[in-house]
Design a binder for these strands. Structure first.
Length: 582
RNA sequence: CGGGGCGUAGCGCAGCCUGGUUAGCGUGCCUGCCUUGGGAGCAGGAGGUCGUAGGUUCGAAUCCUACCGCCCCGACCA
């Protein structure tokens, strides 16, 4: 591609709307333009990057035995009513009625459509297993779109769905996808981890997220460096040391103490001269409309997803003061588990505490000398709090590390939730009808591009991993008015293309500075400069964006050397092999 | 949905508080000269319903009201 003919509007200044680095660089580099909140046009360069990722995804999905198809984006409400998600999915599902007053929605995901297809087209166990995928634009009406391509309302997703005869067979399909995902992100040149994840609204029995490690990530991960354990903090188990430390020799009796204006743990701790570890924190959540008190140690934090799972609830939210007061008439800020008239759920750690401080359920008062088990008995006790960096790995006991991650892929074992709801069955060898055992597997293709940039950039711009770079090489013609230089640059451009290299040829009549800056900004891995050195010595310069290595090459044979270098570097990606450990 | 901020040329911003000729600066864009290894220089030029609607006023980018759009924070620790 000739730069002079390409729509590639780079800017020197950072648009004020962009906060995170990938968003800034995608705008500055002329990859995307915003149409409205969370909705972007992919300009030619941005589309090229997306397509590079999509192609890797496609190759690895095909290699894993999946077949590509393309489903509609507009979906009838009836299907969603069948699965029950027309009610459950919430306002992220963009709904509308057409001219015939038919209710429809824009597909945020395609379980309903694919299950409908499967029940029509797959009748026999002989046709299974089957794995079908598409790469397509999804629409989710996010609460708050942000960070450019990281959390858009409209985005490009690869979604795959597997159909199997049994649980065991479905697990094999899952394992294949797990391996394929490793190959995909590895080939993309990303630093990532597969982590155990919560199954979320999509439902199902177990699940892994693929996380690109980057500070701008919206998720927090607990990772063990000693073993392979890694989990989203929404899921990461807290394992308490065994045996439990012995209780106090003399359990105190309850005393009521005045604590004027002391609502926060740290205030109470300071005022009563106790450590936060001795305080029981009582938080009221609204769980499916009912108030529930969650108890954790004063220095701990409730993990709401764990709370939700522990209670088997559909929706958990922390109530605001007014709402809780309306529901319970309780004195917010002075709550405690002793004689609390609402349902209580305690973190396992709370039951190990002794001589605790907690709210007295009376304004301006707390209790001391509280003994869990003696003075109160929660309805449910379990793992409720978020892991911390001081906890140990639930798998090996080693040290845990917390780190931020960007979710680029998520795989689920769905089981028969959808096939049963939608009556999607096949006939087995004995002539019986059975529901398909399903799995579903997503990759945020456009988000992969953003995540790659978050992970690979410097002060001059993007440093694309070679496999997903929109072009592999860029030729800078620094003498467009020199016939000699231009002839050499043009020839190199053609020679590299003939050798299968994806080349952007900067033939613009611009000063060298602009060309260097633009080449750095858009992150093309291999830069070839044809300029003064060529006029003087007949040589061109090859420089690698990633490590800055520079070689000066005689023009004769340069195309071969450059092409070989790019192919060698390309071959170094996708070498890591990992499989799902059972 | 709650809180905060912003909306003036393609982009980045000033002007608004304290209303008053023709609305400015930087950059980008166009023309010419010059220059050509890290976003040069000089000269000339095009480009604006000051987000929209209404109001106050002799007069509104500026004051008031409503609406629209965008961004950030929150929706998780009492």
């Amino acid at each position: 591609m000739r730069y002079s003919q390409m729509l590639l509007p780079t800017t020197k200044e950072t648009p004020s709307e962009a906060e995170v680095v990938s968003h800034q660089l995608l705008l500055r580099g002329g990859f995307i333009r915003k149409l409205s909140s969370g909705i972007y046009t992919y300009l030619p360069l941005g589309l090229a990057a997306v397509q590079k990722v999509a192609q890797i995804v496609r190759e690895e999905m095909n290699r894993a035995g999946a077949q590509e198809l393309l489903m509609p984006m507009v979906q009838p409400a009836d299907l969603w009513k069948e699965s029950g998600r027309w009610r459950k999915y919430g306002s992220e599902l963009l709904r509308f009625v057409d001219r015939h007053e038919r209710e429809s929605c824009l597909g945020p995901t395609h379980e309903e459509v694919i299950t409908d297809l499967a029940r029509r087209e797959l009748q026999s166990y002989r046709q299974l297993p089957m794995n079908l995928y598409q790469i397509q634009t999804k629409f989710r009406d996010e609460i708050r779109p942000r960070f450019g391509l990281m959390r858009g309302r409209e985005f490009i997703m690869k979604d795959a769905y597997s159909f199997d005869v049994s649980d065991e067979a479905a697990e094999e399909s899952y394992r294949k996808m797990y391996d394929a995902y490793h190959r995909i992100f590895d080939r993309c040149g990303l630093d990532f981890r597969a982590v155990e994840a919560d199954t979320g609204t999509i439902g199902g029995s177990f699940s892994h997220e693929f996380m690109v490690l980057a500070q701008t990530g919206e998720d927090t991960l607990a990772i063990c460096d000693q073993c392979s354990y890694a989990a989203n903090v929404e899921k990461a188990k807290v394992v308490l040391p065994e045996p439990a430390p012995p209780g106090p020799e003399q359990p105190e009796e309850i005393r009521k103490v005045e604590t004027p204006g002391m609502k926060k743990v740290e205030n109470v701790a300071g005022f009563l001269h106790v450590r936060p570890e001795s305080i029981i924190k009582t938080l009221v959540y609204i769980v499916d409309g009912e108030p529930v008190a969650a108890l954790v140690r004063g220095d701990r934090e409730v993990q709401p997803v764990k709370l939700k799972n522990l209670l088997g609830a559909a929706e958990v939210e922390l109530g605001d003061d007014q709402r809780i007061y309306d529901l319970t008439k309780l004195p917010i800020g002075y709550l405690g588990p002793v004689d609390l008239p609402i349902k209580m759920v305690a973190d396992q750690e709370v039951m190990r505490m002794a001589n605790c401080v907690c709210g007295a359920n009376e304004k301006q008062f707390h209790l001391t000398g509280v003994q869990p088990g003696r003075d109160f008995q929660p309805a449910v006790v379990g793992d409720l709090r978020e892991v911390s960096a001081t906890d140990s790995c639930p798998a090996c006991g080693g040290a845990l590390r917390l780190t931020e991650g960007i979710e680029v892929g998520h795989i689920f074992k769905l089981g028969t939730a959808y096939s049963e709801a939608m009556n999607a069955t096949f006939q087995d060898g004995e002539g019986r009808e059975n529901p398909f055992v399903m799995g579903c597997y997503g990759i945020g293709v456009s988000r992969v591009v953003a995540a790659a940039i978050e992970q690979n950039h410097d002060r001059n711009g993007i440093v694309f991993p070679l496999p997903i770079a929109p072009f592999q090489a860029i030729i800078l013609n620094l003498g467009v008015n020199s016939e000699q230089i231009t002839a050499a640059a043009e020839k190199l451009y053609h020679d590299l293309q003939q050798r299968g290299i994806e080349v952007l040829y900067d033939d613009r009549d611009e000063r060298p500075g602009s060309k260097f800056k633009d080449a750095d900004l858009i992150g093309i891995p291999c830069r070839i400069t044809v300029g003064k050195t060529f006029e003087q010595e007949g040589k061109v310069e090859m420089r690698q964006r990633s490590d800055g290595t520079t070689e000066t090459l005689a023009i004769e044979g340069a195309a071969d050397i450059i092409a070989r270098e790019i192919k060698n570097r390309l071959a170094s990606f996708g070498r890591n092999k990992q499989t799902l450990a059972e």
